[in-house]
Amino acid sequence: MRLSYPTNVRIVKLPCSGRVDIIHIMKALENGADGVYVAGCLEGDCHYQVGNLRAKKRVAYVKEILDKIGVGSDRVAMYNLSAGQGPRFAEIAREFTEIIRKLGPSPLRTAKKKAA
């Protein structure tokens, strides 16, 4: 298909979105990512039954923390799509990139400069 999607998206491959833990998302943000999204299979289609549903709960948990620590929950999202939805994959990458671009760089990167 040779679909193009924004080059700023860095993909971390995992066997199942159920492997994504709270700390993984937190560390990505801490280490400088402006946003993190988890791309899991469609709900009800998990090969391991509930992996994507677990990921959904963990993403929600991280969002709650981010709102309380001044980073903002919008920087994290969960998307569901099947392995056969290449165009949707590229669309999500563009969509989320656009959301983050509107939010601007992570406050973790800009706070120091503002204070200076």
């Binding site: 700390i23 937190m26 801490e30 406050p107 973790l108 706070a111 120091k112 503002k114």
Partner: peptide, 19 residues
């Protein structure tokens, strides 16, 4: 340890965003 790691990460981010 797992919860300590999450809390420590959250606190680090809190401090950093507050400059």
């Amino acid at each position: 340890l797992k919860e300590a790691q999450i809390l420590a990460s959250a606190l680090r981010m809190y401090f950093r965003q507050a400059g």
